[in-house]
Amino acid sequence: MPTVKFTYALRRFFKTLKDTSAKSETLQEVLEELEKEYPGIRSYIVDDQGILRKHVNIFIDGKLINDRTTLSDPFNKDSEIYIMQALSGG
């Protein structure tokens, strides 16, 4: 099962956030799984239309995903999916 890891910045809003094993086969489904575990988290990662937020990045096995709109990048059962923020602002 792929493992989802999170930037520490999200723990500010989701106190119980920890590395999570996912059962799904697509990133969109992974987000739905996460939403069940951590209600509200999906809207922190993608916008109203399901598009990855501008300053949020998802890495699969260390590689930035290509498809920020429909989240179609593939992964396998051993993959590590890392959800992190861009560094910006002040």
Binding site: A9, S43, Y44, I45, Q49, G50, R53, V56, G89
Partner: peptide, 28 residues
């Protein structure tokens, strides 16, 4: 939030505790 989008919270005890409410979202 610059990174995490627009969020909405409310407090019924003058800011001592807050509850996150689903922010207005545009339909698909």
């Amino acid at each position: 939030h610059g990174h995490w989008g627009v969020k909405l919270h409310r407090s019924k005890d003058r800011g001592l505790t807050w509850e996150e409410i689903k922010a207005p979202a545009y339909p698909e």
